[in-house]
Amino acid sequence: MSVTVIIPAHNEAKNIEKVIKSTLPHTDSIIVVDDGSTDDTLEKALQTDTKVIGLRHEVNLGKGAALKTGCDAARKLGADIMVCMDADGQHKPENIPHFIRTLEEKNVHVVFGTRQFNSNMPVIMLLGNRLLSKTIQKLFRVFVRDTQSGFRAFTSEAYEMLRWKSSGYEVETEMIIRMGENKLKFAEIDIDTIYLDEYKGTTAIDGMKILVQILKWKFL
């Protein structure tokens, strides 16, 4: 079973090297999708190791589009398992073997990394994540505890059914909805709650956009 880690990155030159180095022991290959960075994220990523495959979006399209490019590339290269991870270091690569083990042992299609909703999570994020997770559970009857966690793994076959249209931060939610629609089996594993940069990643506005999108998916 070949494992490919997909890392969408936007202006992460500061962190990408460290993230790749700590991920390498746990995977067969890494695909970094540079999503229109204005710094040298991709160059730094490619210098780190020959296992790294670098793809560049010439303009910033958003996390969903970058992940899709990465997953399409992984599929073309014959990956059996895809692991999605953030580039800022908020996901611990040591968890990757746990994801793979859970996929294999529990015979599921998707494994979600679930963060604890505790004091490590900023209050606004905690409230937003809870609201979005509850809304998805109510409207789509898919009981994933942490719907906004970007640390997840799935099989190549499952990706065919999960393949999303969202180009922004709605990607995590759309993946869950597609998983529910296609009746794919899933499991959850606990991961650490780490927030490193309060100015990057999803904001309260993104949360509102995701909520509006959820309602559109349900009712339109």
Binding site: S29, L55, A65, D72, A79
Partner: peptide, 25 residues
């Protein structure tokens, strides 16, 4: 326009794949 741009940018990124030597898959 957004859709067209996204398709073009993603296609271009994926076209780079063919020129990459993959050693570990």
């Amino acid at each position: 326009l957004e859709k067209r741009l996204e398709n073009k940018v993603r296609q271009k990124a994926l076209s780079e794949l063919s020129s990459i030597k993959v050693k570990h898959l």
